[in-house]
Amino acid sequence: MTFAIADKRLFRLGLILCAVIIVADQISKAIMMSVLEQHPYGIPILPVFSLVTAWNKGVSFSMLRNLPPEVLSGFAILVSLGLIYWLTRVENRLIAVGIGCVAGGALGNVIDRFRFGAVFDFLDFFIKTGSGWEWHWPAFNLADSAITVGVILLLIDGLFHRVDRAKTEHS
């Protein structure tokens, strides 16, 4: 079995983006942990946004929080390895960027699970009404944002670019 990379520039782009996201995520978390240590109740920024300290033992929206962090980390590492393998086959910049975002975000959160047993989240968006009712989006971090952006890019490619390719193949 031979191992070949379809487009070395796109492979390198995806890996560099993955690494940049991991580093930026860890730096942002270290800074926010330090800042929020002095503000245990959070820091209001806008009427709909605060910086908070939140620890997520699960995955998105705290799902699977009862699983050990090693299981969640192992799964995230396997997914990231699968994505990096996919990156060796990529011939499209949008997919390379999407894969780099998802893998970088997943691995950034894996680092938290290994270090702390949970993922540090600090971005809190919410809605307050005059009657005192509040609705909070689950707190998240830069890694989560990168995963979301990456998935959206992969969906855009899957929904629109694949249709374009199918049209040209049938013409």
Rank of each mutant, 00 (worst) to 15 (best):
S145D: 05
V97E: 01
V119M: 05
F116M: 15
R93A: 10
W133E: 15
L123F: 13
D144E: 09
A118I: 10
D124S: 12
W133H: 14
R113D: 06
G132Q: 05
E134M: 15
V151S: 07
V149Q: 04
N92E: 11
W137V: 08
T88C: 13
H136C: 14
V97Q: 06
F125C: 10
F114P: 12
V151A: 06
W137N: 09
G130C: 07
N109D: 02
F140P: 04
L153R: 01
T148W: 05
A96C: 01
I95Q: 13
V151C: 08
W133D: 13
S131M: 14
T88R: 07
N92W: 02
V102E: 05
L107Q: 04
I95G: 08
L142M: 09
F140R: 12
G117R: 01
P138I: 09
I127H: 14
T148L: 10
K128V: 12
F122D: 02
D112W: 01
G105I: 03
L123H: 05
R93D: 05
G105R: 05
A139C: 08
I99R: 03
L107P: 13
V102H: 06
N92A: 11
I147A: 12
I152H: 00
I147G: 11
D144N: 12
V90F: 02
R113Y: 03
F122E: 06
L142T: 07
A139I: 02
V151Q: 02
V102D: 06
I152S: 12
V90D: 01
W133T: 13
L94W: 01
L94S: 06
E91R: 09
A103V: 01
T148P: 10
W137Q: 10
G104W: 02
F140E: 12
F114G: 15
I147K: 09
V151W: 00
